[in-house]
Amino acid sequence: MEVSFAAACKQAHHALLNFQSGPGIINMEPFNPIRRKEKEKVVFVMGATGTGKSRLSIDLANRFPSEIVNSDKMQVYKGLDIVTNKVTEEEQRGIRHHLLGEIEPDKDFAVEDFRRHASLAVESIVDRNLLPIIVGGSNSFIEALVDDEDFQFRSKYECCFLWVDVSLPVLHSFVSDRVNRMVDAGLVEEVRGIFKPDADYSRGIRKAIGVPEMDQLLRAELAGVNDTETRLRLLGAAIEKIKANTCVLAWRQLSKIHRLQNLLGWYIHRLDATEVFSKLKTSGREADVAWERHVVGPSAAIVRSFLRSEDANRAIAMNPSPAISAKVARTAVAAATR
């Protein structure tokens, strides 16, 4: 049974509310048998699709000598730049990006592959005295890297987690508009360029939202269906599916962040970008001001404190009490901004 964009958004919103109101917080930082007095620092930028994670990572990289490691499981592939919402070369503003458009489109890229490639990238970055910023919405990749089986990553690196959050109703509206812009920018033509009737949508880049949804339209074209009304109907249905599936993806990403935070005890700094997105439709300039005030400014203060104080951030990472952790974080940020 097909689910409309509006229905999917409503279901996702209610499901997330139920998720958030579940059992109490259990903070259990995994035991790390190997600890060094000093660790290299790594920053993670997390969030649901469309919340501005890439923008924040680039803004931070222009304030701190950094390179970025992509952790979006679809953006690692070559091609389909519109479908996968890759940052353009201009948007990258000269910041080097690792694992962005590097993997062949038909190749499977699993969590083990990401862990290996990302670990090598992080090691290379810190060896050049730069800050690694890992950014993306594939939280399963991030969890596999940070909480690996033998705790190697946590034994080497101190982690700072930033979460760009936008309220679901506001985000859903933005996502709907973004899909429309993607279609205007050439999404259909991009997918048409890789379409194969016998393609496996469970492998490689063809798993990306925006590809399977176009199947019926492209099959109709291949069969010689020239009726304009039919093609417009199929296109409209495909766009609706893309919006609905993107809404479901956002809910899953947020649910995973809440799980990492509430069940696994990750200390994650939440940056509320709802006001930014609320202003986008009325004033781009006001949205930019809000982005600086609510997202970039606080994030930069957190990262600055994180880079300055090994002991304070270890206390945050290991403290079992969310209330105390929040107090330590506020104290650290205040000290960094004085």
Rank of each mutant, 00 (worst) to 15 (best):
V3P: 05
A8I: 03
K10R: 15
Q11G: 05
H13W: 13
H14N: 07
N18R: 12
N18H: 06
P30T: 06
I34W: 09
I34F: 11
K37M: 11
E38C: 07
K39I: 01
K41G: 01
A48T: 08
K53G: 04
K53D: 11
R55G: 06
D59W: 12
N62R: 15
N70W: 03
S71A: 15
S71E: 11
D72E: 12
Y77T: 02
E89Y: 00
E89L: 11
R96S: 01
L100P: 02
L130Q: 10
G137R: 00
L145G: 02
V146C: 08
K156A: 09
C159V: 15
S167V: 07
V170M: 05
E189M: 02
I194G: 03
P212T: 05
E213A: 06
V225T: 14
L234M: 14
A238E: 12
K241I: 06
N245Q: 15
L249M: 14
L254Q: 15
R259V: 07
R259E: 13
G265R: 10
I268T: 09
R270Y: 07
A273W: 01
V276A: 06
E292R: 12
R293I: 07
G297H: 05
A300N: 00
A301L: 03
V303W: 00
V303D: 02
F306Y: 05
F306T: 00
R308M: 07
R314P: 00
I316Q: 03
N319V: 02
S325R: 15
S325V: 10
K327W: 01
V328G: 00
A329C: 02
A332K: 04
A334L: 13
